[in-house]
Simulated assay, not measured.
Amino acid sequence: MSSTSATFAPVITIDGPTASGKGTVAHGVATALGWAVLDSGALYRLTALASIERNIADDAQDEIAAVAEALDVRFEHGAILLEGRDVTEAIRDERVGNTASCVAAFPAVRAALLARQRAFRQAPGLVADGRDMGTVVFPDAPLKVFLVADVEARAQRRCKQLIDKGIPANLTDLLRDMRERDARDTQRAAAPLKPAQDARQLDSSNLTAEQTIQTILDYWRDVAPAS
């Protein structure tokens, strides 16, 4: 694939806070369109997991950036492999998520992962979910969606996900952690969480995943270039 053709492959970006349903929705939209999907948050979680396993201090920006740059990661058939190990579930641990939110504030880490994220842009198209997909990584995307949901709804959603997986969860603790992560993500100096100027904001608090996916597909039909 030439760099030119990759540059012009269409992209739909889906940004939003933690547990707003971005991942599920992005996969649903990508499946409907036959496109690839980029879970950018997984790259930050992988960086966090690898740093934790190496006992690197949470504030060691340069060391963590070096980890991000050298990540040995593969996405295969729905599984996420780190150095050949399946870490699909491990990176969803709450400690890893909180650490990822911290290291994502480091400009050096974001710079280390930027080229990796843009390399996912290939024909026939890409659905990219994260926190700065529309503002930083793919600012020329023809469709940018900023997915929001009430923080209580998001905490309940995450609590149910954990319990369904057999992982103990406390709603009060999750709500506190989520508010702290929202504050870090929106207030950081490097690529803060915010909608792109031309993003369509979509509140999924009272929508099912299927309804949210369909709404985004309808948005795409509105802006998609004629074939």
Rank of each mutant, 00 (worst) to 15 (best):
S2R: 09
A6L: 08
V11N: 11
T13Y: 05
G16S: 06
T18L: 08
G23V: 05
G28P: 05
G28M: 06
V29D: 07
A30D: 02
T31F: 14
A32S: 11
W35E: 07
L38F: 04
D39C: 11
L46Q: 03
L49C: 09
S51Y: 07
I56L: 14
D59F: 12
D59C: 10
D59P: 08
A60F: 05
Q61D: 15
I64Q: 04
A68G: 07
D72G: 12
E76R: 14
H77P: 00
L82I: 08
G84Q: 13
D86P: 02
E89A: 15
A90G: 02
A90Q: 14
R92A: 03
E94R: 15
T99S: 08
L114D: 11
R116K: 12
R116V: 02
R118H: 10
D129H: 07
M133T: 05
G134P: 06
V136E: 03
P139R: 00
A141T: 00
F146C: 12
L147A: 07
V148S: 11
A153G: 10
R158G: 02
C159E: 12
I167C: 06
T172V: 15
D177I: 10
D177G: 13
R179D: 05
P195F: 15
D198C: 01
S204G: 04
S205C: 08
L207Q: 11
Q211N: 02
Y219C: 08
R221P: 00
V223I: 09
V223K: 01
A224H: 08
